[in-house]
């Protein structure tokens, strides 16, 4: 070993990030009291990229996705969404949330509002659109997720799959450039799972950026550009979905895939 070669060897020229970055996360840490839920997370999601987060329960996937739209406050590290750094300032939080749509495991529809009102609620309040315009937008997206016939019903009158599709339409109404899905099919019966996954596949094809926590490995394989495996608050392995499933490099991912596939 001599010092000269060490200095002389140039590092290969490699672009750090793709041209357009949607989400950039650096050294992210999140604690719940003394428990560390996320440990030095680095993750970059390009615009139009479909990224699947998977891993055993308690691995920090949901915490990570919830930190991105500030439903959980991170303790250190940086999150940038379409160039805006997510600080704990209300104005930054609001600007970041405008870029993001969120779909939850438990649908979280407003139970006392009709399907249509669920979709127009934020259009009227957050964007201050007139009712007629909000209704038009809502009907357009309800049609896109195939629940246009249910617009006048209440969430409790719908099946789980229909409710989750309404929740997707509700998020899409605000025209986010990035959609976050937190286990969108985990609370559904097997029949409904298919209807929701089909909508998500259609959505993926539109060029929207998606970050999705899911245990649906078949879906991940078909749709994902990249898969990320997390365990104990850390990213253990990530790669293109082909390599991720056919040639996992870490023993932990191998063990995980053996269990879920």
């Amino acid at each position: 070993m001599n010092a000269v070669t060490q200095i002389a060897v140039p590092s290969p020229v490699r672009r750090e990030t793709p041209a357009a970055v949607a989400i950039s996360i650096r050294k992210l840490n999140k604690f719940y009291g003394g428990f560390q839920a996320l440990r030095d997370i680095d993750l970059e999601v390009g615009q139009g990229e479909i990224v699947i987060l998977c891993g055993p329960s308690g691995s920090g996937k949901s915490s990570l996705i919830r930190c991105i739209n500030h439903l959980e406050q991170h303790n250190s590290g940086t999150i940038r969404v379409n160039g805006t750094e997510l600080t704990h300032k209300a104005s930054d939080v609001a600007q970041v949330r405008r870029q993001l749509g969120m779909v939850f495991q438990g649908f979280n529809l407003f139970p006392h509002m009709t399907v249509l009102a669920n979709c127009t609620f934020a259009l009227r309040l957050a964007l201050r659109l007139p009712a007629a315009e909000a209704n038009d937008i809502a009907r357009e997206y309800l049609a896109r997720v195939n629940v246009q016939d249910q617009a006048a019903k209440y969430p409790s009158e719908l099946s789980g799959g229909q409710q989750q599709r309404v929740a997707i339409a509700r998020a899409l109404c605000l025209k986010p450039s990035i959609m976050l899905f937190d286990e969108p099919t985990s609370a559904l019966d097997p029949e409904s799972v298919g209807s929701v996954l089909r909508i998500m596949e259609d959505l993926a094809a539109t060029g929207i950026t998606m970050v999705c926590v899911t245990h649906e490995m078949g879906f991940a394989r078909r749709v994902a550009d990249r898969c990320v495996f997390m365990e104990k608050g850390e990213i253990v392995e990530e790669g293109t979905s082909d390599r991720f499933f056919s040639a996992p490099s870490t023993a932990r991912l191998k063990a995980f895939l053996q269990q879920v596939l």
């Binding site: 739209n69 439903l71 609001a94 949330r97 405008r98 993001l100 749509g101 969120m102 939850f104 438990g106 979280n108 529809l109 407003f110 139970p111 006392h112 609620f121 934020a122 309040l125 957050a126 964007l127 929740a167 509700r170 998020a171 605000l174």
Partner: peptide, 30 residues
């Protein structure tokens, strides 16, 4: 009021004030 429903409103861009007066209190009233 289920916290998840309030989170959904928050994620949709409602301010804490709007979430209180337009969602949490109307649900609580019921």
């Amino acid at each position: 009021v289920p916290p998840g429903v309030v989170e959904a409103a928050t994620a949709l861009g409602l301010s804490p004030r709007q979430a209180l007066f337009r969602l949490r209190l109307p649900m609580a009233a019921r």
